[in-house]
C-alpha cells in the first residue's frame, strides 16, 4: 500500500482541500524557487496539428481533422531564424510532421544549420510508401528519429494510439533498422519515446529501457539507441479523457505529490524555444498546446534576432507539474 501512497507532498499540498492542489507558481514560491531560462540551445518546431492518428493521450488534440499546418512562408521564416540564431539541436515535431507539405524542405534546410536534427514520428505516418522520399532524406541528412512506442503490449498500444498501430509500429521499426537506424556504427540514431497508457506515471527509465531492449530484440529483432519514458501532460485530448473518466483530480494530485525541485534544473523550457505552426513562439510544446506564449507575450519568429536571453522568465501553469514529477521531463 505504501508504495503507491507515500510520496512527500509539495509544499502547499493541502490536506484541508485536496481537490484544489496548489498552483505551480505557489509551489515554486513556497520553496523559494524561480523558473528562468538558461542558455537556449534547442529550437523545437511544431509544424502543425494534422496527424493520421488521434491518440488518446495527445496534449495537442492532433488528428486527421485538424487543419493547422505550417505554410511555406512560415517554414522559410523558421529556417531564417534558425540561421540567424544558431542552435545546437533542432527538433521537428507535430502532429505528424510527415504530413506537412514542407517537411522535406525543413529537413533539407535545417540539417545544414545545426549539429543535431531530430525528427519526431508516430511511425505509422513515416512507414507509408508515400514518405519514401522523406525517409531517404532523413537517412542522407543523418537526422535522429524519435519514435513514439508506448508499450510492448499490443492491446495497450492500440488503446492509446488506434487499432492496428502496434503492428504497424513494429513493421516501421523493422524497416528503420534495415536502413541502419538504431544499429551501432551506422550514425543513424533511433530513439523510442513511451508515454503511459492511462492515468498513471511512467516507470523508472533505466529499468524500462532494459526491458524494451530485451523484448524488442528477442521477439522481433528490433534494436534502438535510447529509450525515454515521459509522463502524460494533462492538456488537450488527455485532459478531456482524464475528466471524462473521473481520473483528473487524482492524476493532478499525483503530479503535485511527485514534485521534485531537483528536476527543475533540467526541464526543457530552460534550454528550448518552441515555434508553432503559425510562427509564434512558446517556452515549450505544452505551453503551445494551451496558448500560453513565451514569457507571457506573443512574439513571431520573424521578429526575433537570436535565442531568448538567459534569465528570461518562463510562462508556467499547472501542467508544468508534469515536468517536475519524479525524475522529470527533459
Amino acid at each position: 500500500m505504501t508504495a503507491a501512497t507515500r510520496g512527500r507532498p509539495a509544499a502547499s499540498t493541502n490536506k484541508k482541500n485536496p481537490a484544489n492542489p496548489p498552483s505551480f507558481q505557489s509551489t515554486l514560491a513556497d520553496r523559494g524557487l524561480t523558473l528562468v531560462r538558461n542558455t537556449t540551445d534547442t529550437l523545437q518546431i511544431n509544424v502543425g496539428l494534422k496527424c493520421n492518428q488521434a491518440c488518446r493521450h495527445c496534449h495537442l488534440s492532433a488528428g486527421p481533422q485538424r487543419a493547422e499546418n505550417m505554410d511555406r512562408r512560415t517554414a522559410e521564416a523558421v529556417v531564417a531564424y534558425a540561421r540567424r540564431a544558431g542552435f545546437q539541436t533542432i527538433d521537428i515535431t507535430g502532429g505528424a510532421p510527415e504530413l506537412n507539405p514542407n517537411a522535406e524542405f525543413l529537413v533539407a534546410e535545417l540539417s545544414e544549420l545545426a549539429p543535431r536534427l531530430m525528427f519526431r514520428s508516430n511511425l505509422s505516418a513515416l512507414n507509408s510508401r508515400k514518405r519514401s522520399r522523406l525517409l531517404d532524406l532523413l537517412v542522407s541528412r543523418r537526422a535522429v528519429i524519435v519514435a513514439s512506442f508506448p508499450s510492448l503490449n499490443p492491446g495497450q498500444a492500440d488503446a492509446q494510439r488506434g487499432s492496428g498501430i502496434f503492428s504497424t509500429s513494429i513493421d516501421a521499426l523493422t524497416r528503420l533498422n534495415a536502413l541502419g537506424y538504431g544499429r551501432q556504427g551506422s550514425g543513424l540514431e533511433l530513439n523510442l519515446v513511451s508515454n503511459p497508457v492511462g492515468a498513471f506515471l511512467p516507470p523508472a527509465q533505466s529499468e524500462a529501457e532494459a526491458r524494451f531492449r530485451r523484448v524488442l530484440k528477442g521477439r522481433w529483432g528490433i534494436v534502438f539507441n535510447r529509450y525515454y519514458s515521459f509522463a502524460n501532460v494533462p492538456l488537450g485530448r488527455f485532459r478531456n479523457w482524464l475528466k471524462h473518466t473521473e481520473n483528473f483530480q487524482r492524476y493532478m494530485q499525483k503530479l503535485v505529490s511527485a514534485f521534485n525541485s531537483c528536476a527543475l534544473d533540467g526541464v526543457m523550457c530552460r534550454s528550448l524555444v518552441s515555434v508553432a505552426w503559425d510562427g509564434y513562439l512558446f517556452d515549450c510544446d505544452f505551453n503551445l498546446a494551451c496558448g500560453l506564449p513565451m514569457s507571457g507575450r506573443k512574439v513571431h519568429v520573424s521578429d526575433l534576432d537570436g535565442p531568448p536571453a538567459a534569465g528570461a522568465p518562463i510562462a508556467t501553469a499547472d501542467h508544468c507539474y508534469t515536468c517536475t514529477a519524479g525524475s522529470g521531463f527533459t
Binding site: M1, T2, A3, A4, T5, S151, L152, N153, G155, Q156, P196, V197, G198, F200, L201, P202, P203, A204, E207, A208, R211, S229
Partner: peptide, 14 residues
C-alpha cells in the same frame, strides 16, 4: 495500490 503500482512500474494488463 498494487494495480496502480504495477502500471506505474511498467507492467501491462497481460
Amino acid at each position: 495500490a498494487y494495480t496502480r503500482a504495477c502500471l506505474e512500474k511498467g507492467s501491462n494488463p497481460a
